[in-house]
Design a protein around this nucleic acid. Structure first.
Length: 641
RNA sequence: GCCGCGUUAGCUCAUUUGGUAGAGCAGUUGAUUUGUAAUCAUCAGGUGGUCAGUUCGAUUCCGACACGCGGCACCA
């Protein structure tokens, strides 16, 4: 009897089997097809190799290729196979780490001569060979000394470092596939054959050893891996779709903005792009006015001393633009709006009755972002924040934070972002202020989060240098996450900059300042919207809402009449009376993502109608001009109305 | 900032042992007056990112710089 163990399956059924049976044998006993589909086994909640002998009573789940957990294993297997391929093709290359990641895997290699994309086909071919050979993955437990010696002899310095850093009590496991082996926690599938053909090497990149820019630069190869070729194809198709939405491409096609090398990281907004940008500001201004904010504007350049007092100079002077004039002063071009806001708060005596005091500012800030970080509108060196600073008492932090959270979520909803995650970032290593102050700030913000009942995840050590913060991450139409809004509790800057108010007891006190931005950077948010909507901006945001296109020149006058009427009603309209066929005009304006195209010919002119064609639809409908105006006027209202 | 790659007409892209570049679209001019995603013809367009170097000769080879792209690092 002691030779048998009891296996419990997910459906509650049990089976008594001989001790030491492997997961694979177990699957095989249930059915041949299950054994074929199996990639791993979950034993009491832990995912393990199928080859692992079962020695105790346990609950098991056989993980099949179709299960979500299988993808990670396939991808990790793929990383190993790639590493083997690389080392066989390029002897002397050291392996470091190679995890599975979203959609695929990577492996970081140390090699004098970095890889280029030209190397990928060769590596990929070798990988197919290894996979076709059907090498068995086998797991071995080595002693620490044995492992260190082995990798040292092989010249694998990075692996040695990894092993040396493992906890003393940790088991050192080695996975072999044929001749090749790697230090690895596992689990892996039974054979390389199971990987199949659903993978592709995507790109090469530099990456620092252990993610630290002080360390050596390794060369990373990224791959994507799926259950089969069909899934791979669909993933590649998805990438193509995402590329079509690229705001840099659409921005050019829609004539919204451009960049040029004399102003790296700074936007040249074209008329249409600027109109879109201004629509966003108008919308936000209205929302903030209604929420009790008062708008301000503060200087773009202020003396360096102010930034020294605030603490920015100490932490960020390297990333601040500075300028000087004929006088002796050094001016910093503002990288943030907060010191300006504090200076406004400081004017005149403030009473506790004035709090909370909500100051907003659409402030344009400049930051010398590292050249490698620049990316279209998403990461620029000059950008506009929908910034605000809420001066309040400590007791008001919770209530004010809650109000900000509600406002943010409501605003995101207006742009179709319903899926928003919140990250809570606490004190970073480099910071100003006493720990007692930080304790207070973090506790207050946490309490605010409890009050809202919103869920959040902890993001340790990622707070601002003056206070903890919330970060609002929204998910776009194709599932990508973008960090936009932020709320920061600051118990440090107001004091450093000398802001005070008279409290109820007649004593001078230092207010708390909440920094908050909802869109974050207007430039970036514009980019996100372009990609989210794939250029098909909602009517109220569209910088060119309507084009009136004539069929023949006989209708020119009517087209202008239609245009005038629409314009009088506050709509943005252009007339296209060029000597071109209607099909040509339709195509051109559709490509430019104009939401409404009105075709007018003799018939429409006679009847005071228009033929309406909506972006994304082939359908046309003819309606009375008055009626259309009524409809479109309604449609062009922002969601506030 | 770091690693790799790239930069050719307004745009999208060609031009392989180094012999001063070509197409489509856009633009011009003309014809055509057209009914829902490209009418035809015509002409014009370039210091091949910038600067140096090798060479009889460089878009092509070498180097530096600038900018961009993919990552890494950074992001008040």
């Amino acid at each position: 009897m002691s030779n048998n163990i009891i296996i419990t399956f997910p459906d509650g059924s049990t089976k008594s089997l001989k001790k030491g049976v492997s997961g694979f044998e177990l699957a095989n006993q249930i059915s041949k097809s299950l054994a074929k589909e199996a990639v791993a086994i979950k034993i009491d909640g832990k995912i393990c190799d199928l080859s692992l002998p079962l020695n105790n009573d346990c609950k098991v789940v056989i993980i099949k290729k179709e299960n979500d957990e299988a993808l990670d294993i396939i991808r990790h297997d793929c990383a190993h196979v790639m590493a083997e391929a690389v080392q066989s093709l390029y002897p002397g290359t050291q392996v470091t780490i190679g995890p599975s990641i979203e959609n695929g895997f990577y492996y970081d290699f140390a090699r004098k001569e970095p890889f280029t994309i030209a190397d990928l086909p060769k590596i990929e071919k070798k990988m197919h060979e290894i996979i076709n050979k059907g090498e068995q993955f086998t797991r071995e437990v080595w002693s620490r000394d044995e492992a260190i010696k082995f990798f040292k002899d092989k010249g694998e310095e990075y692996k040695v470092e990894l092993i040396e850093d493992l906890n003393a009590d940790e088991e050192i496991t080695i996975y072999k596939q044929g001749e090749w082996l790697d230090l690895c926690r596992g689990p892996h599938m039974m054979s390389t054959k199971q990987i199949g053909k659903g993978f592709k090497l995507m790109k090469v990149a530099g990456a620092y050893w252990r993610g630290d820019s002080n360390n050596a630069m390794l060369t990373r190869i990224y791959g994507t891996a799926w259950r089969n070729e069909k899934e791979l194809e669909s993933h590649l198709l998805q990438i193509e779709e995402a590329e079509k939405r690229d705001h840099r491409k659409l921005g050019k096609e829609m004539d919204l903005f451009h960049f040029q090398e004399e102003a790296p990281g700074a936007v040249f907004w074209h008329p249409k792009g600027w109109r879109l940008f201004q629509s966003l500001i108008s919308y936000m201004r209205e929302r903030q006015d209604k929420a009790g904010y008062v708008e301000t504007n503060t200087p773009d350049m202020m003396d360096k001393s102010l930034w020294e007092t605030s603490g920015h100079w100490d932490k960020f002077s390297e990333m601040m633009f500075r300028t000087e004039a004929k006088d002796e002063k050094i001016y910093a071009i503002k990288p943030m709006n907060c010191p300006g806001a504090v200076e406004i708060f400081k004017q005149g005596l403030k009473s506790y009755r004035d709090l909370p005091f909500l100051l907003s500012e659409f402030g344009k800030v400049h930051r010398y972002e590292p050249s490698g970080a620049l990316h279209g509108l998403m990461r620029v060196r000059a950008f506009t924040q929908d910034d605000a600073h809420i001066f309040c008492t400590e007791d008001q932090i919770t209530e004010e934070s809650k109000t900000v959270c509600d406002l943010i979520l409501s605003i995101y909803k207006d742009f179709g972002f319903d899926n928003v995650r919140i990250k809570f970032s606490d004190r970073p290593e480099k910071r100003v202020g006493d720990d007692a102050v930080w304790d207070k700030a973090e506790a207050a913000l946490k309490q605010a989060m409890e009050t809202t009942g919103l869920e959040y995840t902890l993001n340790p050590g990622e707070g601002a240098f003056y206070g903890p913060k919330l970060e609002f991450v929204l998910r776009d139409a194709i599932g990508r996450d973008w960090q936009c809004g932020t709320l920061q509790v600051d118990l440090n800057l107001p004091g450093r900059l000398g802001a005070t108010y008279i409290a109820e007891d007649g004593q001078k006190k230092t207010p708390v300042m909440l920094h908050r931005a909802l869109f974050g950077s207007l430039e970036r948010f514009t980019g996100i919207l372009i990609e989210h909507y794939a250029g098909h901006l909602p009517f109220w945001l569209s910088p060119l809402q309507i084009v009136v296109a004539t069929i023949t020149s006989d209708s020119d006058n009517y087209a202008f009449e239609v245009k005038d009427q629409l314009t009088k009603n506050g709509l943005v309209v252009e007339a296209d009376i060029r000597n071109e066929k209607i099909g040509y005009k339709i195509r051109e304006h559709s490509n430019a993502k104009v939401p409404v195209i009105l075709a007018v010919g003799k018939k429409e002119a006679d009847e005071q109608t228009v033929s309406v064609r909506r972006l994304g639809s082939q359908q046309t409908s003819t309606i009375k001009l008055d009626e259309l105006i009524k409809d479109l006027k309604k449609e062009s209202l922002s969601p506030i109305n």
